[in-house]
């Protein structure tokens, strides 16, 4: 395959960026999208040019490190996967591919396609945990949990914190990310104990960090590589409201 790549280049957070055009030839349809970028980078190095910075790590779709807006879609045109699992067979020979970083005020660009997502860490630090110390906990089978509840908790816990939801949302809202954590813990008796406190603290932190409001367009769910349902946002809203009513 021969391709034309339109890639966002930006030296650092303080500079403005721009698109550069690169041509790349003889790409096997069986390689991954990031392997295609590896090849481009190796070519750039050999011709004395700066390689393109992009985040990636596990390349198995689980660590959440890779990002990229590809042809206007978070994680590219395929569904249910992250960028690292996208393969070139999803593109056509001769196609122009546009590659951009996440676009969200809460995720400033560090360089080229790399963004700063520490705001997600900060939201979880505000309350995305069960307050138990190590040791002195009951036997694992002491609290039976119904399989449907446990399964639903796991559905929400599949979130990889990649940032696609906030980067896709026209309001730049992190609601799906927050909801996934709140909902996962709310479905379990261990997490219920401090459910109200958690929902309030995480939503407040999200607002403080400059993420926008949710207007229920469902764009986040559509682009989520792990198919986290916006049903979890409804549960977050219930948790949040009942917390407010208790105040």
């Amino acid at each position: 395959m021969n391709l034309k790549l339109k890639i966002w280049r930006q030296a650092n957070a303080k500079t403005t960026g721009k698109f550069d055009i690169y041509n790349i030839d003889n790409i096997s349809p069986d390689i991954s999208f990031l392997e295609m970028l590896d090849i481009l980078n190796n070519d750039l190095i050999h011709s004395g040019k700066e390689p393109i910075a992009f985040d990636h790590d596990c390349r198995e779709g689980i660590c959440g490190m890779c990002s990229l807006h590809i042809n206007g879609h978070a994680h590219g045109p395929d569904s249910e996967i992250t960028t690292c699992q996208l393969h070139m067979r999803k593109f056509n020979d001769g196609e122009t591919i546009t590659i951009e970083p996440w676009r969200s005020t809460a995720f400033p660009v560090i360089k080229d396609l790399v963004v700063d997502r520490t705001s997600y860490d900060k939201i979880l630090q505000a309350g995305g945990f069960v307050s138990v110390n190590t040791g002195g906990v009951p036997d694992a089978n002491a609290i039976p949990i119904s399989k449907p509840d446990s399964d639903e908790s796991m559905d929400a816990a599949a979130c990889i914190g990649c940032g696609a939801c906030a980067a896709t949302c026209k309001n730049g809202s992190a609601m799906l990310f927050v909801a996934a954590r709140v909902s996962s813990l709310a479905k379990l008796p261990q997490g219920k104990v401090e459910g109200a406190r958690r929902a309030k603290a995480m939503v407040a932190k999200m607002d403080e960090l400059g993420f926008g409001n949710c207007s229920n367009t469902g764009a986040c769910e559509a682009e989520c590589p792990k198919l986290i349902s916006i049903g979890h946002i409804a549960r977050l809203n219930r948790e949040f409201l009942s917390a407010k009513l208790q105040d």
């Binding site: 908790s153 816990a157 996962s184 379990l188």
Partner: peptide, 9 residues
């Protein structure tokens, strides 16, 4: 035991 207490599903 610890992981279950933390809410690991």
């Amino acid at each position: 035991d610890q992981c279950v207490a933390q809410g690991v599903p």
